[in-house]
Design a protein around this nucleic acid. Structure first.
Lengths: 245, 245
DNA sequence: GCCTCGCGTTGATCTGCGTCAAGGAGCCGC
DNA sequence: GCGGCTCCTTGACGCAGATCAACGCGAGGC
């Protein structure tokens, strides 16, 4: 009998799946094990095109994937950022609604969609767990909407850094406190697509935050934040709970 | 035995609930009936404050509610627009994450949260139906993110009109075709909060669309669209399926 | 009648960010 | 070494949309 837990370790996956149910039993888990397989993708590779038939659902094991939407004239907006332990897929839907791209080299733990859906319809916990996760994503999307609609470029950058820091801390089960350092897993252009800006503005604002001592950089991607509260203030968030994981 | 259907008529509600299950039986429905009640709200009234303890979930029966987020300095972003048949509430979560306000006079059909959740955990169909609805909302939120991040003011207005027209057509089970007319249920300021603009820009762009013959106005709120495809083109949507409900 | 209030429109001006352009740093292949 | 990448930075300039301000219109109170 597996320990009662929100997350469950699944086979040789390095992460604990959020996809599996909250109150699992060995039977459920073994059924999941039977239908799962791994897939690897290279950085830049498109995993799914919007409109494609979806044959699987799954979680990100390592690496980063992004959900994007592109207009005919090429304007692009990222609408989802998938870090390890995030779920991909829309159970009950035949096709994908957005493009999914591997931003870095990526490993996913997939479940064939049909059997997964069958599992879902017979074990209520799986459906409830998925609902919980989808509600989390919806909340995140709505925070993101505030960022896109009302925040300034500087606030957007500060928000992005704090979002990544928070996710990173949650992933490694540690609490962020005092100073902290993060690797930005995105290029300037990807950050721009995330934030609804241009890459030049992203670059300028990062330089400005650095100049003002809010962050410091080693290389292009590695950020250290001397004072998290200062960063959150710059982000314009009503610092509720702060960096609590 | 109730007819097998995606939507189910619930008691004296004028609408068919999307909240109830796809493959319902009389037993489930009667359990829903036992825990449901109606609440009315006046236009402008706040239904739930962000952070409040949620005591109920439910659907909008008539009228319009909006989900909003406000920053400390007063900048406001609408993050959800709840039309009749839309579901409110986050099963499994103790508190609300956003403000919910009645935009017009409003009637809701509520279910006490605790028994609803119990029903959900015992009848897998309810959880699956809710998952489906939440995924729909997530998709809508992601489309909205493209709008907020990358569209011009003119495209935003055109998008808003077509979104409302589409929702309106879906609600009344008719297909939009050729010309069509819609009532905008929002003030200019609410539209601005929806679109991440100022009310002045909203007003100017509506005037511009009117001047260019894309729409025409009777009064401030009633819009008629002579050519839907033209509007969709202005909205910058890759017109897939167009106004199909 | 008049006044007020909410909502909408329009004009003048300002500014944050986009656009265009040039150049630097690191990396790989040869 | 050199050329050709990709990624990033910085500067100059322009414009879409914000800001500030005035005014129009209809509804309701008295």
């Amino acid at each position: 009998m597996i320990e009662h837990s929100v997350h469950v370790q699944c086979g040789e996956c390095p992460i604990r799946h959020r996809a599996v149910c909250a109150r699992c039993d060995t039977d459920e888990l073994s059924r999941l094990e039977q239908i799962k397989y791994y897939r690897s993708f290279q950085a830049g590779q498109t995993i799914i095109w919007s409109g494609d038939r979806m044959e699987f659902v799954g979680s990100v094991v390592s690496g980063i994937a992004s959900l994007t939407q592109t207009m005919e004239d090429g304007r692009r907006q990222m609408v989802g950022l998938l870090l390890p332990s995030d779920f991909v897929g829309r159970p009950g839907r035949p096709t994908a609604a957005f493009d999914v791209t591997a931003t870095t080299d990526l490993v996913m733990c997939c479940f064939r969609k049909k059997p997964f859906e069958e599992l879902m319809s017979t074990t209520p916990h799986v459906a409830q767990r998925l609902l919980e996760m989808t509600l989390d994503e919806l909340d995140a999307a709505r925070e993101w909407m505030l960022l896109l609609g009302r925040k300034t470029a500087r606030e957007k950058i500060a928000s992005l850094i704090s979002i990544i820091a928070r996710r990173d801390a949650a992933l490694h089960h540690r609490r962020a406190s005092g100073a902290l350092s993060v690797d930005l897993p995105l290029t300037r252009e990807e950050m721009a697509d995330y934030l609804g800006l241009t890459l030049e503005t992203v670059s300028r604002q990062i330089s400005a935050l650095k100049r003002d001592g809010v962050i410091s950089l080693e290389g292009n991607r590695h950020v250290t934040v001397p004072d998290i509260d200062r960063l959150l203030e710059e982000a314009g968030d009503d610092n509720d709970g702060g960096m609590l994981v």
